[in-house]
């Protein structure tokens, strides 16, 4: 079983977010955690409330960007941060949930807003049973 996880990677002005998992869904959920970690430490965000997210795109890479942008939209309009994600993908459709709570500056100490997920260094791939999903986000 491939181990799930996330990391950031280098981009000179912004930040790359990368997730791994045994399935594409798990990799997408981990990339969302990497996105959260650009803003704040996911460990201090309590997954109190779920927000439903749905998006469609003609390929997996565009679907990843849509997924991340949908989370960015929910963070911005609900003033929330998320620390737990579930993802189901069926063809062009992604149905997911983001669990989190309202931003509390003193506790979450958010560093920066994310403006959007981009197509830079965008990749969704599988190798030896391990899925990878990544792109650069604009901050």
């Amino acid at each position: 079983m491939a181990e799930a996880g996330w990391e950031h990677f280098h981009h000179v002005a912004d930040i790359g977010v990368r997730g791994y998992g045994a399935t594409v869904e798990e990799a997408f959920a981990q990339t969302a955690l990497a996105l959260t970690a650009v803003i704040a430490d996911p460990a201090v965000i309590v997954p109190r409330l779920p927000v439903a997210i749905e998006c469609t795109a003609p390929d997996q890479e565009l679907l990843l960007v849509d997924w991340l942008n949908a989370i960015i939209y929910e963070m911005a309009t609900r003033a929330m941060l998320f620390s737990r994600f579930t993802v189901r993908i069926a063809g062009e459709l992604l149905i997911g949930e983001a669990w989190g709570e309202r931003v509390e500056v003193a506790r979450h100490r958010p560093a920066v807003e994310v403006k959007g997920a981009t197509y830079t260094a965008l990749r969704v791939s599988e190798e030896g049973g391990r899925w990878l999903a990544q792109c650069v986000v604009d901050v």
């Binding site: 960007v65 849509d66 942008n69 960015i72 911005a76 959007g116 981009t118």
Partner: peptide, 30 residues
């Protein structure tokens, strides 16, 4: 602010999908 970010996000996708319809070969989807 958020309005500009959202417009950028939405039109980036719309144009990426539309480019081939207009016969534009993009060396980079961005």
């Amino acid at each position: 602010r958020g309005l500009g970010h959202q417009i950028g996000t939405e039109f980036m996708k719309r144009m990426a999908l539309a480019a081939s319809r207009y016969g534009i070969q993009l060396p980079d989807r961005e």
